[in-house]
């Protein structure tokens, strides 16, 4: 079908395509500023969950660490910023406390997690995540228990909030991609490919995985703080493992490598979910079904698939 296009032009097109797609993605995130309202609300939500998804993509796709406990980071970040504001701390400080708390939790659980390998890591992230959920749920005095925690008076305009969230997302993607080019990032990828070999070269793989986990925790905690400010409410139910699975869906849907896929997956998921929720309240059915379909049929994710289709068949993955 593309036989009539000169080879040279096709080559140019393929080289420029990734950049075009990335630009297009950011435009998609920016566009709702024009319409405001609920669309903007959703777009902000997508950017914040995108930040968390990008962090998970870094951890899973590049670090090879499967985590089903990301909701705990989100929740810790959300409660941290909520409680900081309640205690009268300035917002800026709250936004520092949130990632710090999540990172501390990542450090403590990571010390135990990385004593095991493979699927056990996944089971334990899930177990620890549910621990945070049950604490949040039961510890009424601090978290407000089932009633949640209301935030008021942050006075951020939706536009500002959206730009902030999107800025964070862009920074995170750019920063993590740079990190992945560094010796640390390459070593982390090497550990995913062959941990024994990397250890035999003298690299203490344990700490490399631990720091990747802590960094991911901090970023996700920040995303959680953003979600709390955005929704002006923190509910313990957002700490349930369904949220962790949702993040997993976003990452797998978009593609777990390269980080852009995760951001795209978050955007896609958020809008599809908003659309679907007008028919049904069975959120678990939706997330679960989507997870099953993604695992069975969209193994590498939509972003690389899109890149290949637009590039005319073969493409660079």
């Amino acid at each position: 079908m593309m036989a009539w296009i000169p080879q040279k032009a096709l080559k140019e097109w393929r080289r420029g395509l990734p950049w075009l797609m990335r630009g297009g993605l950011w435009l998609l995130f920016l566009a709702p500023l024009l319409v405001q309202g609920y669309t903007l609300y959703l777009a902000t939500e997508a950017a914040l969950f995108g930040l968390a998804a990008v962090a998970l993509s870094f951890l899973l796709g590049h670090g090879g660490i499967p985590s089903l406990g990301q909701a705990a980071f989100l929740g810790l970040g959300a409660y941290a910023v909520g409680l900081s504001l309640k205690a009268g701390l300035p917002l800026a400080l709250g936004l520092l406390v949130a990632p710090a708390v999540a990172a501390l939790y990542a450090l403590l659980t990571g010390l135990l997690l990385f004593r095991t390998h493979g699927i056990f890591v996944l089971m334990l992230t899930l177990a620890f995540g549910q621990m945070v959920y049950s604490v949040a749920h039961k510890w009424n005095a601090v978290t407000g228990g089932d009633d949640g925690l209301s935030l008021q008076g942050t006075g951020l305009s939706p536009t500002l909030l959206h730009l902030g969230a999107l800025g964070l997302l862009v920074l995170a993607v750019a920063g993590l991609r740079l990190l992945l080019q560094s010796p640390y990032g390459k070593t982390l990828e090497a550990i995913r490919q062959n941990e024994e070999k990397v250890r035999s070269l003298g690299v203490p793989a344990f700490y490399y995985k631990l720091w990747a986990y802590v960094l991911t925790g901090a970023l996700t905690g920040l995303a959680g703080a953003g979600v709390a400010l955005h929704r002006t409410f923190v509910s313990p139910h957002d700490l349930f493992w369904l949220t962790s699975a949702t993040l997993m869906v976003m990452v797998l849907l978009g593609g777990s490598r390269g980080l852009f896929g995760a951001a795209f997956g978050a955007l896609l998921y958020t809008f599809v979910q908003a659309w679907v929720s007008s028919f049904t309240e069975l959120w678990g059915l939706f997330v679960g079904g989507l997870l099953i379909l993604t695992v069975l049929f969209a193994r590498e994710g939509l972003w690389p698939l899109l890149e290949r289709k637009l590039g005319g068949g073969r493409g660079s993955a």
Partner: peptide, 28 residues
């Protein structure tokens, strides 16, 4: 390390021996 370039394999080994694997602010 199958997904890394040949030179990256060697460069990583080099960094590991010189204790530079932890460097995160500049590309390999």
């Amino acid at each position: 390390l199958p997904e890394l370039a040949v030179w990256e394999n060697v460069a990583l080994a080099r960094q590991a021996a010189t204790g530079q694997s932890r460097v995160f602010h500049q590309p390999l």
